[in-house]
Amino acid sequence: MGHREDLLAGAKRCLIEKGYARTTARDIVAASGANLASIGYHYGSKEALLNAALVQVNAEWGAAVGEVVAASRDFEAAWTRVTELFAAQRELLVVTFEALAQAEHAPEIRAALASGLDAARACMAKAFLDNTTDDTHRAVGSFCLALLTGVMAQWLIDPATAPTAKDLTLAIRTIATR
């Protein structure tokens, strides 16, 4: 790898270990083996490098969730596997919420997150639907993403009381029959 790739890998490690706000340029340099000046040369600023790392880490998290959801067409089984990912990759959840917080102030993060929404909706909907209209796919995908974000937030705050896949399934069945 070159310095650019080393810096990005180091920034990703720092995001996971220290978080966005606590990561310094010197932390990234130490994690990457690159030199301080190379941050400015390759990325322009520490913030631009961290933003690029945030986008990449969020894409990796999205891919992990997509794989888990695609592996099962049963709602409860899929959500069981998704919530298992929470424990296995807690750091990625935290970075995801940091990206959401930074999106307000970093247009490149907002654009990157927005560009992934349609693909994420399609992935989530595909797991639970066969041939339906585009409107149905978008609605189901949007619902699943909203559910994912809400469950992630509850799980980060208190994993012991966050809704389980069984809870989610019961809730949907109950709401659907009313």
Results as ranks from 00 to 15, higher is better:
Ala59Arg: 11
Leu15Ala: 11
Trp155Gly: 02
Ala146Ile: 05
Asn51Ile: 04
Asn51Phe: 05
Leu50His: 03
Ala139Glu: 11
Ala87Arg: 04
His137Trp: 06
Arg110Gly: 07
Ala127Asn: 01
Gly2Tyr: 05
Ala77Val: 11
Ala31Lys: 06
Ile28Lys: 10
Thr96Ser: 01
Arg138Phe: 08
Thr83Asn: 06
Asn51Leu: 03
Asp27Pro: 15
Lys166Asp: 04
Thr169Ala: 13
Thr174Ile: 08
Ala25Pro: 14
Leu148Ile: 00
Asn131Tyr: 06
Arg178Ile: 06
Val57Tyr: 07
Cys144Gln: 02
Gly141Glu: 02
Ile175Ala: 11
Val55Gly: 09
His105Tyr: 13
Ser38Pro: 08
Asn51Gly: 06
Ala48Gln: 14
Ala120Phe: 09
Glu108Met: 07
Arg4Ala: 06
Trp79Thr: 01
His42Asp: 10
Val55Glu: 10
Leu8Thr: 09
Lys12Glu: 14
Thr24Met: 15
Met1Val: 11
Arg121Asn: 14
Arg26Val: 14
Ala87Gly: 13
Arg121Pro: 11
Val82Cys: 01
Val68Ile: 11
Ile109Lys: 00
Phe143His: 04
Ala171Thr: 10
Thr169Asn: 10
Val151Ala: 02
Ala165Phe: 02
Trp61Pro: 04
Glu84Cys: 01
Leu93Glu: 02
Trp79His: 00
Lys46Cys: 05
Asp6Val: 08
Ala87Cys: 03
Leu85Asp: 04
Thr177Tyr: 05
Leu15Asp: 11
Leu147Cys: 00
Arg4Trp: 02
Ser38Asn: 11
Pro107Glu: 13
Thr96Glu: 03
Leu147Phe: 06
Phe75Met: 02
Ser32Leu: 12
Glu60Lys: 07
Asp6Gln: 13
Ser38Met: 15
Asp135Trp: 09
Leu36Val: 15
Ala99Thr: 05
Gly116Ile: 08
Ala99Glu: 05
Ala11Gln: 07
Ala63Ser: 15
Val95Trp: 00
Ala106Lys: 06
Ile28Ala: 14
Arg73Met: 10
Glu104Ser: 13
Glu84Trp: 00
Asp167Asn: 10
Arg4Thr: 06
Asn58Asp: 13
Leu93Asn: 03
Gly33Arg: 05
Ala106Phe: 07
Gly66Gln: 10
Trp61Val: 05
His3Pro: 01
Thr164Leu: 03
Glu47Gly: 09
Leu100Lys: 01
Ala34Lys: 09
Val29Leu: 15
Ile16Glu: 15
Ala37Ser: 15
Ala103Ser: 14
